[in-house]
Write a protein that binds this DNA or RNA. Structure first.
Length: 260
DNA sequence: ATGACCACATCTTGTGGA
């Protein structure tokens, strides 16, 4: 089973890219982030015609997450519990049945948090706490669990080209990394970090300052695996070639292959 | 040498992204 996460930076602007990617990569489940559209505006038929079930949790202009799946998605949860006043569409969770069990998958768009300090950073830290609470709950099920998405966290200096440039940024502040570490310490395996020892693997390159051409990227898109999922991890990779496509997203797909 | 992006809203400019 192949599971992919991809922040597409507007599904309307990237519909062709997603269709092209589905054809070439043939994932079983594709988690999408930053749809930037409401549910009714999502081009669902196009992907249904390609054999995918489409589940969206959209929002006008900002945020928005979705899952495309070849297998039926069940037990769907839209939104992250813990704050009734939060109206940002950043969390979508579903379950698929596999041989002898289930795999639970979430598509996550964690808040950026800049500028820090400030209300946006407070929101980011609060959201991370809620994610940790949800994760603790899900881990008690002791089932394969894949929390995939744009975490907007640069976990270590190895995950960017020059950590000094990120020292004051909400993606790299000590408090951000501590919160992410605390979440990971619940027992999650970072699929890319555990599969590829080489530092300076990136999943995002800014549109500005020739970042792609100079390979000035950051690694912020992660697939975090429960131990039951990590036990099934066969392969993992970053499809960075899509960053070279015409009018690309600034993020690229990150994938895992599980032994189901 | 310098400066350099992109998507969205209902717009020719401001906001947000990372």
């Amino acid at each position: 089973m192949k599971i992919v996460t991809w922040n597409v930076n507007s599904i309307k602007a990237r519909g062709d890219h997603v269709a092209r990617y589905l054809e070439e990569a043939a994932p079983d489940i594709l988690c999408l982030q930053e749809l930037k559209c409401v549910d009714d505006a999502f081009p669902r038929e196009r992907f249904e015609d390609m054999g995918y079930q489409v589940v969206t949790h959209g929002q006008k202009t900002y945020n928005g997450v979705a899952m495309l799946s070849k297998l039926p998605l069940e037990d769907i949860t839209r939104g992250l519990e813990g704050d009734e006043t939060d109206e940002q569409a950043r969390y979508l969770e579903a379950v698929v049945s596999v041989d002898g069990g289930v795999v639970r998958v979430a598509s996550i768009y964690l808040p950026n948090g800049n500028p820090a300090p400030g209300p946006k950073y407070d929101y980011k830290l609060g959201w991370m706490q809620r994610l940790q609470a949800r994760a603790e709950e899900l881990l008690t099920y002791e089932e394969p669990l894949v929390l995939a998405g744009d975490y907007n966290v640069i976990q270590s200096a190895d995950d960017c080209y020059n950590d000094k440039l990120w020292a004051e940024d909400a993606l790299f502040l000590p408090q951000t990394r501590a919160a992410f570490q605390s979440f990971a310490n619940l027992g999650f395996t970072d699929a890319v970090r555990n599969t590829h020892a080489a530092p300076h693997l990136y999943t995002f390159w800014d549109y500005q300052r020739g970042a792609w051409q100079k390979d000035h990227g950051i690694r912020i898109d992660h697939l975090m695996l429960s131990c039951q999922a990590a036990d099934k991890l066969k392969a993992c990779g970053i499809d960075k070639h899509t960053r070279g496509w015409e009018r690309p997203s600034d993020h690229v797909p990150v994938w895992i292959e599980l032994d189901f």
